[in-house]
Amino acid sequence: MSLLSIKSLSKNFGGLQALNQITLDVTEGSVHGLMGANGAGKTTLFSIIAGNQRATTGTILFAGQPINGLRPDQVCKRGISRTFQIVRPFAGLTVRENVEIAILYGRQTPPKVSEAAALAQDILADIGLDALSDQPAGSLTLSGRKRLEVARALGTEPRLLMLDEVMAGLTPVEVTDMIASLRRVKDSHGLTILIIEHVMSALTDMSDTITVLHHGEKIAQGTPKQIADNAAVQEAYFGIAEPLEAPA
């Protein structure tokens, strides 16, 4: 069953066609990868789903309900949470306060203010940030900030978690840690994940299905194995493979 269903979605920025007739279904409980070169439209797609931007045409159904035109805070309450590729921590607040605010505002039935701190601490423990919860978020390293993005998104109790390059800029060890954390929270929170990732090994490792975008068009979809063998994908990434001609 698809939790998120996108039909014929297009987005124009003036003359630039950022997304062209995208149709995409994300199966409940799956990890769905989005890949494509810079400028392919991946982050634009995230922004439209999350309500940060409006689609030019097309519809988005979440759990069977249309969510086009909702404000970001309304989309969040429906159960969709995103992270930002360029991290946006509340730098002047502590790590725990960052997550507390997500808990108090992102949930359909928010807990009492007095309970939020303990709930935030649990989420931070899940994601491996609990030792730093009293630190100002601005003092975290990049790896810490990426984790905080995930923790804050989890605070809203999403059904669909959209991760925008949460592994970019991390060391290989940190990438391995992050994948382990994501697997753990996916199982414990019963999440569906839509993930953009340039670290290809991480993407193929985690995804059940991968969709490839190229210049705003969907050019392929399939299992990681199918994508690796797909001719259109190879062409988009490496150029046309021409057979070498033997010298005459």
Binding site: D73, C76, R82, R88, L93, I101, Y105, G106, G155
Partner: peptide, 12 residues
């Protein structure tokens, strides 16, 4: 702190 991040986590 950050209006875009705030509305994304549900703050009206």
């Amino acid at each position: 702190e950050d209006e875009t991040a705030a509305e994304t986590i549900g703050v009206p």
